[in-house]
């Protein structure tokens, strides 16, 4: 067992973890944050994407011990004071989800896309989503959701 200390959604945690424990299992099984999903075992689907120290990371590809000292945001940490983050709002407004399973990962990736490029083109959004798979939407409304969020975030900044 190794001891780690992490901040997840602005809350500090200290845990003893097995060295082989993947970050996604740590979040889901140890911290009870089941919003982050597991969709594959080869780091293709992106359902488990979370933000680790500002970077979108597939949490099935990282050991919990590697997150020692890190600051992590999961889907549960997106809304602030009861109001949705613009990316969440975009997915809701534009019907960017159906079964919802890929959605948490999509939201975190969307956040990263918009942080790197506040005004992305459709092609840039589609490129940015390459690490996340969705079987329901055909991606069309996910793209629209991110465009909605981009506009909203720029309005907030302005």
């Amino acid at each position: 067992m190794s001891q780690i200390s992490v901040r997840v959604n602005d809350k500090g945690y200290q845990s003893d973890v097995e060295p082989r424990l993947l970050l996604v299992y740590y979040l889901r099984d140890v911290l009870g944050l089941t919003g982050t999903h597991i969709g594959c075992d080869t780091s293709q689907c992106g359902a488990c994407t979370v933000i680790v120290d500002g970077k979108a990371v597939k949490s099935c590809t990282m050991f919990a011990v590697q997150a020692n000292g890190a600051s992590i945001t999961t889907v549960e940490g997106l809304a602030k004071d009861g109001s949705l983050h613009p990316v969440q709002e975009g997915f809701w407004e534009e019907h960017g989800l159906q079964c919802g399973f890929c959605t948490p990962g999509m939201l975190m990736t969307a956040l990263q896309i918009l942080e790197r490029n506040p005004n992305p083109s459709e092609a840039e959004i589609r490129h940015g989503l390459e690490g996340n798979l969705c079987r329901c939407t055909g991606y069309q409304n996910i793209v629209k959701a991110i465009q909605y969020a981009a506009k909203k975030m720029q309005e907030i900044k302005a």
């Binding site: 944050l33 089941t34 919003g35 982050t36 999903h37 999961t74 889907v75 549960e76 997106l78 809304a79 949705l84 969440q88 997915f91 809701w92 989800l97 919802g100 399973f101 959605t103 948490p104 939201l107």
Partner: peptide
């Protein structure tokens, strides 16, 4: 579903 509160 967008807030991580769904139960699969």
């Amino acid at each position: 579903l967008i807030s991580g509160q769904a139960t699969y």
